[in-house]
Design a protein around this nucleic acid. Sequence first.
DNA 1: GACGCGTGGTA
DNA 2: TTACCAAGCGT
Length: 297
Amino acid sequence: MSSGQILIPAGELLGWYRTAQRDLPWRAPDVTAWQILVSEFMLQQTPVSRVEPIWRDWIARWPTPSATAAAGAADVLRAWGKLGYPRRAKRLHECAEVIATEHDDEVPRDVETLLTLPGIGAYTARAVACFAYQQDVPVVDTNVRRVVARAVRGVADTPARTRDLDDVAALLPKDGTAHVFSAALMELGAIVCTARTPKCGICPLTTCAWRSAGHPEMSTPTRPVQKYAGTDRQVRGRLLDVLRGSVSPVTRAQLDVAWLTDPAQRDRALDSLLVDGLVEQTADDRYALAGEGERTD
DNA sequence: GACGCGTGGTA
DNA sequence: TTACCAAGCGT
């Protein structure tokens, strides 16, 4: 994409965002950069509705990086509950430790430094810079990618590409409102220009290349949806669920009953949890969530 | 760049 | 019911 042409009118988008934005708890004025960062970790591949209650409890319990770092890893994994992808919880804990010890308990402001932190990638680094520190950096998540694909390129969606960042950067207004523009773009994708049944009837954009083209279907295939039932991921989930539910270490037999259909797969899943540092083996040959017994709060 | 990584709501 | 999908990251 080239051009200095304005392809998404900022006025239309920002006007809509002012009245239509959701009242999400991490958007409240007194929320800190760390607390916004926590929301971003939780929102990585998990819907807002499931994150909200967990985030509220989490922030009340561990409001700062140092408070989070002081908690035991097992307590963090339990508080994460069933949000999914528990490696995120572990990385959030590690991220808290780094910020507490190496950044004076302050979330770094610049994208370069944010990118060095555990669990923070291209999206989250810029989301924190944008939403917590009002920086005019391009923020590209699945919503932004889809809105740009449709409104600008006239296609239903596009697979993730590294050059998405440059494409979106070219669309940002240069008058200092880019951070709001980015938030609005994401919000539009989240509640109007949705993946499955877009609400074109209430879209604030008066011009849209996708609409003009007659809402064509996807031409370039995206990644196929992953299977879950019967996969190692499901087995890991079952094993972890057993461990989250037990304050004391469990025996191998207690884990074995969590997945009876394929013992070899069960062993592989347990091994991968040990490798990932989510589970530990105790001296008496039992199993527990990693960091069980470190606890502080 | 492709793949593996949880979980549950919705159509 | 099955299949899709939800503010990605690390390898």
